[in-house]
């Protein structure tokens, strides 16, 4: 893996942290994607949530339009397994009230013990799951 990729990862991380900083400082809001989706779907806080998510898609679109590397889908990944994963991610992040951004980026930023527990939990369960899926069941 090229050093360039790690530099891009670091730049991306700093931009994500910068975005979370601006949203919290200016609007007093936490840049947690799962909460923002939930507020778009189930609350009256729709407009800013919709605009943030629209920006999220547009931001990625700009990077891809500038020649950034576009993700290539897997060809042999089971559809039912991907769907099951989607339901688990949606239900799980709603139940835990946060995902990688809300608990990981913002929660750790607030030095929240809850978010530390959440982050360590989804990271360790994620590591274990990937091991089982890839090396015990051979799904890649």
């Amino acid at each position: 893996m090229a050093l360039n990729n790690l530099l891009n990862a670091l730049i991306g991380g700093i931009l994500i942290g910068g975005s979370a900083t601006l949203l919290f400082w200016l609007n007093g809001r936490i840049a947690g994607i799962s909460s923002i989706v939930a507020s778009l779907l189930f609350t009256k806080d729709r407009l800013w949530s919709a605009l943030f998510l629209l920006g999220l898609v547009a931001g990625a679109a700009i990077y891809y339009a500038l020649g950034g590397s576009v993700p290539v889908p897997r060809s042999n990944f089971p559809v039912w397994l991907l769907a099951a994963a989607g339901v688990l991610v949606g239900f799980g992040t709603a139940l835990a009230r946060g995902c990688t951004s809300g608990h990981g980026v913002c929660g750790l930023g607030r030095l929240s013990l809850r978010s530390l527990v959440a982050t360590l939990t989804f990271l360790s369960v994620g590591l274990l799951t990937t091991f089982v899926v890839r090396h015990l069941f051979g799904v890649i």
């Binding site: 397994l81 991907l82 994963a85 989607g86 949606g90 799980g92 994620g126």
Partner: peptide, 8 residues
């Protein structure tokens, strides 16, 4: 649960 879906 999120970790399972993410890891898959």
């Amino acid at each position: 649960l999120f970790g399972i879906g993410w890891g898959i």
